[in-house]
Nucleic acid binder design. Structure first.
Lengths: 226, 226
DNA sequence: TTTGAGAATTAGGCTAGCCTAATTGCCTGT
DNA sequence: ACAGGCAATTAGGCTAGCCTAATTCTCAAA
């Protein structure tokens, strides 16, 4: 149905999706920052994408995905996340390394290949970092998560998802046992964006700096609903 | 050591490799035909590639790969063929479908991924069509094969390799039992580029038209050396 | 209400790769 | 020896994507 999209277009659509995920518009500079291109490149691309009906552009305001653009973005995100699961569980990749590899492959794989991988994996619902995988039909689970840096001292949360870039940080987090599913009791936080101290179920504690705490997305409830 | 090559450059290098495999020069029109581009596009690319030292260009004669170009071409061919084996043996692809998928993926995979796939497969030496897989170090087996259309009537050959494009033809050949490893006795050939008749070990016969016979590469000796 | 900082856009330019049309070179048949 | 045919190259032009510099818009603070 839709024309074949270029690699660049696919990347722009993904950025817009991520930037508008909390509602509102994606800004030119936000997209530029995420894709590491200059703002005028974004303006130019936004013009083309709105001509082809993939985004809605309000000049000087920002952009949003049309239903068609959202469909394409979710397809890319599905590809990316299925690839991440496949690489980690079938080819021994470290959860820190998969992002970069998937980032290139997602533009080259066919839907057929992705569905075969998904099938071989038993239709996984989350990627190795805990991010939900859109269905082939384009539906994605929406969860209300807060970063560990925002969890009030005294409450208990479940770590659900971890930011997937930064291989080195991911490796460190894995060493610390801070992986999706971990139950964390927030016992202290230093002022002035200081570190957060959490206790794991085994009684040990971890001191998590602000920068890492912002990568740890938690469900603010001790029970493990699903 | 070498700059990252573009998708186009990788494709041109592969073409030159295939066209010079029997020795001699690759011609502009040969490359143009193989890549489905116009001849001037080839002239332009040849100029750039010889400036970057990947090919040797003799104007109005043709081109050959430099050692560096050959290394890059063999790397692409290794990627392509490992991918083909992986897709068929791990993800249930038909041997007719793998070529197209591998053609896109070969430009996106990392060497690391290819080596993990090769490892998971037990370092295969041939792809699903019987083509030899270059080693990671860039060595490839050279075999002297003739097409079935050139095998004299009365002799016996072993089918070693099958042209890998044309999914429909590959599926047909598989149905007919004409897959690498098959021992074929050539019992008849019609004149004027007519069909070749072969007998399989089970005594059944197959009539193979000229077009298909040109895709069947055989070792002209009944013994199964290696 | 105005103004100025910062964001966004327009203007203009670059490269990679492709194209068609025009030209040049090679080589073979007479 | 040379004419013609065909292969190759050059000339000139296009699009996608990127860039920097210049301009325009928005919005909040004085």
């Amino acid at each position: 149905m839709s024309e074949q999209l270029t690699r660049s277009v696919e990347d722009y659509l993904k950025s817009v999706f991520h930037l508008t995920n909390q509602g509102g518009f994606a800004t030119t500079s936000g997209i530029a920052g995420m894709l590491e291109v200059a703002p005028p490149s974004v303006s130019g691309m936004m013009k083309r994408l709105s001509e082809t009906g993939l985004i809605e552009h309000v000049p000087y305001r920002g952009v949003q995905l049309t239903p068609q653009g959202r469909r394409a973005a979710l397809q890319m995100i599905r590809r990316h996340r299925i690839l991440e699961v496949y690489l980690t569980s079938k080819l021994g990749y470290d959860w820190g390394d998969v992002h970069v590899e998937a980032e290139r492959l997602e533009h080259a794989v066919s839907d057929k290949l992705i569905e075969r991988m998904a099938d071989a994996l038993g239709e996984p619902r989350y990627d190795p970092h805990g991010a939900p995988i859109p269905t082939a039909a384009g539906e994605i689970e929406e969860a209300e998560l807060v970063t560990l840096a925002d969890v009030p001292v005294g409450s208990t949360v479940v770590l659900r998802q971890v930011g997937d870039e930064h291989p080195d940080r991911l490796r460190y987090l894995a060493e610390q046992g801070l992986t999706p599913g971990a139950r964390l009791a927030v016992i202290e936080r230093q002022p002035f964006n200081g570190p957060t101290v959490v206790r794991l179920p085994d009684g040990s504690t971890r001191v998590v700096g602000q920068e890492l705490a912002l990568l740890l997305f938690c469900r603010p409830d001790g029970s493990d609903g699903e």
